[in-house]
């Protein structure tokens, strides 16, 4: 139990998927202009990543390994994630329209979010057990959400500031992200 807690802390803060592992930067810069979109994206990623983490672990353990076709990992994982996202979209639309209203537009973006496929691959590479995979998937996604929401908060302020023309938009966004990454570096050594 204690180990799982350490794992959660390390995935959220120390090895933060965005700021330390460099994954998921496109949606990070794309959906962080407004707080509202950032929260929506964060929720959608947490939802899908936990499902995808569980599903890809099962596929790897019970299909790819016994059949000795682990080299098909990339191909099968990305197809599973794409299908999963489609399925979740259809399911939410029919049964929980309220949730679909708030998450719906972010779902298609998740297929190409490298944080999702990245975490699934990390889970396999680090040989986590099923429970650990579930926990890391959730923690990495929560870390993604945390960084995204923090960043959106800063970025909303930047909109009001007078930024030199060549630095505007993505450029200043990356530099701000660098500053946030620097604060996250101070979590190192916690575990």
């Amino acid at each position: 139990m204690g180990d799982l807690f350490v794992l959660v802390i390390s995935c959220i803060f120390i090895n933060n998927i965005l700021l330390a592992q460099y994954l998921g930067n496109c949606p990070f810069l794309g959906t962080s202009k407004k707080m509202e979109t950032a929260i929506g994206m964060a929720m959608a990623v947490i939802f899908v990543l936990v499902l995808a983490g569980a599903l890809t672990w099962i596929i790897n353990e019970y299909m790819l390994k016994p059949m000795d076709v682990v080299y098909l990992q990339t191909l099968s994982f990305i197809l599973v994630i794409a299908a999963l996202v489609q399925f979740v979209e259809m399911f939410l639309k029919k049964s929980i329209p309220a949730l679909y209203g708030s998450l719906g537009i972010y779902l298609p973006l998740i297929t190409t979010n490298c944080a999702v496929l990245g975490v699934c691959l990390i889970n396999i590479k680090e040989e986590y057990t099923f429970v650990e995979s579930l926990v890391t998937s959730f923690a990495y996604a929560a870390g993604f959400g945390l960084a995204l929401i923090l960043f959106a908060g800063v970025r909303e302020r930047i909109l009001l500031a007078r930024v030199p023309k060549p630095l505007q938009d993505v450029s200043i966004g990356l530099i701000t992200a660098g500053m946030i990454a620097m604060t996250f570096m101070s979590f190192k050594g916690m575990v």
Partner: peptide
């Protein structure tokens, strides 16, 4: 070489590209 350095480096380079292109 650290993660923040990567973000800041890319951001500055983008700025430079904008400066040349504009």
């Amino acid at each position: 070489l650290t993660a923040p350095g990567a973000f800041v480096g890319l951001g500055l380079m983008l700025c430079l590209m904008n400066l040349i292109g504009k």
